[in-house]
Design a protein around this nucleic acid. Sequence first.
DNA 1: TCGACAATATGCTTCATAACATCCTAATTT
DNA 2: AAATTAGGATGTTATGAAGCATATTGTCGA
Lengths: 233, 233
Amino acid sequence: MRSAIKRPSEAESDLSGFQLFKKLTEDEFNRLNFEKTCSIYKKGTIIYREGSRLTGFFCVTRGIIKIYKTGIDGKEQIIRFAKKGEIIAYRSLLSQELACTTAKVIDEAALCHIPYQTLLYLIQSNWQFSHHMLQIACRELREANDYITDIAQKTVRERLAEVLLLLKENFDLDNQNTLQISLTREELANMVGTATESVIRLLSEFKSDKIIELQGRKIKFLDIASLTRVANL
Amino acid sequence: MRSAIKRPSEAESDLSGFQLFKKLTEDEFNRLNFEKTCSIYKKGTIIYREGSRLTGFFCVTRGIIKIYKTGIDGKEQIIRFAKKGEIIAYRSLLSQELACTTAKVIDEAALCHIPYQTLLYLIQSNWQFSHHMLQIACRELREANDYITDIAQKTVRERLAEVLLLLKENFDLDNQNTLQISLTREELANMVGTATESVIRLLSEFKSDKIIELQGRKIKFLDIASLTRVANL
DNA sequence: TCGACAATATGCTTCATAACATCCTAATTT
DNA sequence: AAATTAGGATGTTATGAAGCATATTGTCGA
């Protein structure tokens, strides 16, 4: 299930950049470092699977993780992507439920595993940590609510445009305005909640409308303003 | 914006039944009681509005509150209903954002307002309170994720069946299996994310399939098994 | 380098559901 | 009781998007 291939670098094991841990005392931070386990996971690796019991949460120090749920007849619904500086698996851990999502590496990643006991210790010993954790959960909750409204009320076209803009916000562009995350059409469809063919068609339309440019999986933004208009934002 | 009409009863001001406050010390609980403000809100009252700044969160001790977001051209998307024992408005408060939903009374309600300062005090002074709060947020987050998957992948028919089952779970039935919450067809549509006409049609179908019985807004369950099958659960 | 498989692209058909237009019914007001 | 209004019901039509078939391109391993 997990497959570490090589040792993570110093930087990839360093959690001091995480906002979440900023308010820890030296002792608390040392204990965190002592009890964490960092590993490299190659593309395609499943970090945890829907229905499994989790032993801790993970901090992403490199790479991209796809978090998704499996719906009707195996069709996956992408909930979010996690990148450097974000945490995953904390939801199921805190609510003491089995994992309700699967996490899969889509860009070789470095993760630090923090055991449940350590999490509980931090919650007990440092209220600012709990407070920060609450803020993370509540922000994610807002995003989820926004998404529900969008998906329930917008057309596939609007949602796809919005998803592209969202990706642009979260995974910045190179100097040529090209998106630095490589997703298949199917993955885009699984974010938008539509069929792969529909995504392909709409992307072609956006392309002939000069809103984007396509080269394989690379998506280059030509006209953000139009895209925003299409997204109905 | 707020309109208290009469004084709440003893029972309606009592927060000792809330799981969330179970682990408070006597002092903490006393301070909570001292700083809370309980009122009665009549049907139709807006508790808080999308975009407003909140001064605290609310505990529901009686009645039903509809939490919804306003989407494209004013169409409302119902996020959830809150009833006795639940809390509302805590999300925006904790993440320090403006309210992203509106809360409206649909069954005369009694609410206790807990100021932000009190919330912060409890988070700082009692880690078990924070922990419990985290669990509430994380559970709601799972529900939101489940809902996203459903709405993205299921048909309107399946979603409506599922919503009916969900209502059955959350608002128990009378001795004749009739749902004890009265919603308009439009409100059902706003939960499911569809048009009012579609809900009307599908409810009629369920009725002629002997799955439910309808009398105005009263919905009586005849065949839960079939409904579950329709919902594709 | 070739074969094989996965991903992408595109046309055509089908179907679920939204949108529109009435009409009906029950509750509320005057 | 007449008048008004909100909610509910139903038929008709329009359309967005899914599903299927098929072609093309791209990618990886032997």
